[in-house]
Computed example of a mutant assay.
Amino acid sequence: MAAALLAQTAVGCTVEPASSEPGAADDSHVAREDPPAPEEAISAQHTLSCEDIRPAALGPGTSFIIRANGPEANCGPGKGDGAGSLALQNSGPLGSTAWNVVSREGVDTGNLLLGGDLAIDLLPQPRGFQVLRLPPGGATLTASSSEGIALRAVTLTGSANEPFDVVANPRGGTLVARWAPAGDTQVLTVQFLDATALPRSEPVELRTAPRDESRFILAGVDTRGRALLVWSEPGRDTLLGQWLKSNGRPLTEPFPIPLPASPSPNARLRPLVDGGIAIQQSDGQWVLRIPSGEAEALPAPDWLASHPQTDLVLIRHRRAHALVPPPVLIEGSGCQESLLLFDSDGTACGELAFPFGGGSCFGRQLGIALDGTVIQQIDLNIPANNQCAWRWWSRLLR
């Protein structure tokens, strides 16, 4: 089965950096903006109170059980797009990552999102999903519909050794940033793709460097569609950052980011409701806030800095924040998972606790779909069942 998964995910063609699959309709022109998902019709101008943000009650939720995709159940967390489809991690043997695509009503589409044993991430879109992989031949991105039907596979880099980053755009689509080899040099190149992996902008070359220099790139996209790039320069003790417009063109000059430079940083860039990017170091500490389009780095706000080891997710049509803490094992009860809710200014709106999900917290994390559905992996407590199970609360944080 592992070989089959790899074979199916390898389909695609090399592009610069994206094009349609051979045999598909000739739609490789620069794509128009995606229409918003139905859930995004509400104006983002309205400021929400904590009463608007925190649900009055969880409700019973929807439970879903499916046969494992391998001889030993290798179940994992779930994610969801903005149109009501959930991708539930149900991997095959030998680490071959896969996700079952299920409607939020609990109807199995029968389709799998296939990552193989080289999957890096699953990026939900307003409609559909994108799977990022890193085989030896270079990073690839496969776009699928909400039903899990593959649309196209594109190659993003020429080899697995090229430094790159691919991040979701809160407005839909993705940003691809990479140091691409060009003769004796390497060129920092960026391009926006739409939700179906078609080009939304032309590739933009920003900087060049000798090819033998060790380089990396980190990227983030804020709620205004602007991109922040972060990288190191030889001889500098700290990092550099630069804001780009939504077409990839520079918005600011490079400016200092007061974080120690290292050969391979493992930081995360997350968008904030009011624009701008929050930066989390590899130790889980939230350290900086970079205001949208401004060439300065500020300390992380207290509401973030006081909650290390959490992930930051936008909820309520990108008008409020949720922090996802690591699950906690409660002796005699099981794995407890919760969410911390905050308004656009960081005012705490309380904690939302979920029913116990099982006897172990290993590999678990609540998923928040783009339509606000909250997904929890659960145990069946049936010996040798070889099944995977989840429950979710449809549009709870829509």
Rank of each mutant, 00 (worst) to 15 (best):
P203M: 01
P254N: 06
T9V: 09
L396I: 10
V324C: 02
L156N: 12
A18C: 13
D345C: 08
L240Y: 03
L88M: 05
I330Q: 15
F354V: 02
V221L: 01
S159W: 12
E213H: 13
A177M: 09
Q130H: 12
I378G: 01
G95M: 09
A295W: 09
P301Q: 10
T140G: 12
F129D: 00
S103Q: 04
R178L: 03
A68G: 15
P254A: 00
R152W: 11
A3Y: 13
S159K: 02
E105G: 03
E331V: 02
R268I: 12
A297W: 06
A57P: 03
D184I: 10
L88T: 02
S19K: 14
L86Q: 04
P263G: 06
A143N: 01
A4I: 11
V273K: 12
A297D: 04
E213M: 06
P271D: 09
G332L: 02
S159L: 04
A389S: 14
F164A: 09
G276Q: 03
F216Q: 10
L48M: 11
L370T: 02
R171L: 14
F164K: 11
L86G: 05
T373H: 00
K79I: 05
A10C: 11
E233Y: 04
V131R: 06
G334D: 11
D108M: 03
N69K: 00
V187C: 11
T155P: 09
Q285K: 15
G358T: 02
T196K: 15
S246C: 08
G367Y: 10
T9R: 14
C335G: 05
T155A: 12
L352M: 05
T47E: 10
